[in-house]
Design a protein around this nucleic acid. Sequence first.
RNA 1: GGUCCCGUAGCUCAGUUGGAUAGAGCAACAGAUUUCUAAUCUGUGGGUCACAGGUUCGAAUCCUGUCGGGAUCGCCA
Length: 593
Amino acid sequence: MITVEQIISAKLTEAVQALYEQTVAAAVFALQATRTEFEGDITAVTFALSKISKKSPEQTGSEIGKWLVEHCAEVSKYNVIKGFLNIKFSAEFWQARLKNISETTDYGFMPVSGKTVMVEYSSPNTNKPLHLGHVRNNLLGYAVATLLEANGHKVIKVNLVNDRGIHICKSMLAWQKFGNGETPQSSGKKGDHLVGDYYVLFDKEYKKQQAELKAQGKSDEEAAKQSPIMLEAQEMLRQWEQGDQAVVDLWKTMNGWVYKGFDVTYKNLGVSFDKTYYESQTYLLGKKIVEEGLRKGILFRKDDGSMWCDLTADGLDQKLLLRSDGTSVYMTQDLGTAQQRYDEYHFDEHIYVVGNEQNYHFQVLKLILKKLGYDWADAIYHLSYGMVELPEGKMKSREGTVVDADDLIDGMVQTARETSLELGKLDDIPEDEQQRLFNMIGLGALKYFILKVDPKKTMLFDPKESIDFNGNTGPFIQYTHARIKSVLRKAAEQGLQGSLQNAALSEREIALVKIIDAFPEKIREAGAAHSPALVANYTYELAKEFNQFYHDVTVLKEPDEALKRQRLLLLQQVAHVLKTAMAIIGIEVPERM
RNA sequence: GGUCCCGUAGCUCAGUUGGAUAGAGCAACAGAUUUCUAAUCUGUGGGUCACAGGUUCGAAUCCUGUCGGGAUCGCCA
């Protein structure tokens, strides 16, 4: 659907052509929404045009405005203030837009683009449960994936589970030593929490041993390296890599517990994946790429046999790709998995949802792929998001300042329950339905809280101040939707349905039409910017505008039948856009609350 | 030290391609419900857009520098 900006740009271009006999690019109009204190819908800035007209900005604006009103049925009025030409569209114009919106199926969704986009997100370690940082990652990843689907792309959501390495061995070892055969079944603990507890136990024991060694006069470094439990963990990793049956069995068992736990958290968060990769299966990848790079002379080998890429010419350092013992590092694996995925899917874009602490890593990954001559290197996009900080600073697992994902979710749902029960609006519905709503509202609050913030910014979360349910929040938008649905239900009971009429739209109604009219463009913009926050803030604007409308304008008691039906139609569209927009960032809205 | 990111109201955040008198929410205070859901709405107060220069008709936005905060920098992932 053609946007209002495109329409007015074309008209302005015509006007300039007619008045000054010059062709100008649409950009010179610098279109913007008219500020609320002035009359108009859209504003063109005429400073740049005054050079063409050879007249003052005011005079130029007046001439163009006059021309528009005379030649375009869509434009009803104009006014000029300094260099700003405020243009007002006719009520008929907005009515036609509303008609168009109501008749468009899948309103807000872009046509199929033919592009394939891979989105990697979540990527947890299997030695501890998910925390607040993972929550931001998961919500962002899922929302971006849905957003890109709305933009017409084919999206493949993937998870790369870090299921191997020394950290896993730490949990395994501690469980062997101190676990007495504890299982999720025997203890009633969620699997990922159980394994995480042993990770903490390992650390405790490790610290104790280090302290003892230091008391014997060892240096910090010696104590860290010689602690028996650490040596045992390293030995366990070697056994794992050699395929030692007992170690592998234990690894499978404990990872199995963790996956069950993760599944619950993922389900609660409402996120999912099309494919899951495991590092235990990919960690050897990438060596071939490195060898090929060496043959081509792009990489080099040092005396100790380690393999490097020299990036000093690009202002970076030298980067290690293979250790002296021939084993691969993180970067090597990522090179390998990227190629494997490209071969498999031929993606047009590969988005990695990974924290900004890894900016350097992805810069290097892309650069090396480019140097190696892979033309798809440019398809790699690091969606670098900021950390979630607590009032006392960064989360630190050792200091116990980690906000656990499951606790957080439970807390939000609990708050939703308390608030709902207090308001007592849901007393007449069955309990299972109530529970479903508490989940929806609690999660809505959490998701919106996180998604409304620009992904790349560091954000703050204060666990002591629970997430709000009023103002610019998820429940506010959910509530707005529920209110509209309530009116529509009552209308349906009276046999009333929304339909397009020829009743003139009021200013209040036009304000709403304007916002829902901008929806598809907003989705396009947000997709291009990889930013669910733009969609979140858009829904807030719409909900806010609607609540003002709702306060001032009556629908069901409107005596004029045509007006009433037209308003109902408008309400249907607003509800639909709210629901769709929220769904696009992974948030559900209720029929009532 | 090098590189990158950030700094907007007491707090949390919008303000992306330079546009008019920089906006919301929370918190505070004052109001609105015989009327479709008050998880709502209306109003008041609250700002050196970190600071200093520069570019121009015009800068929170672009450039340079300074200060402050964060991330990262050859064998962790």
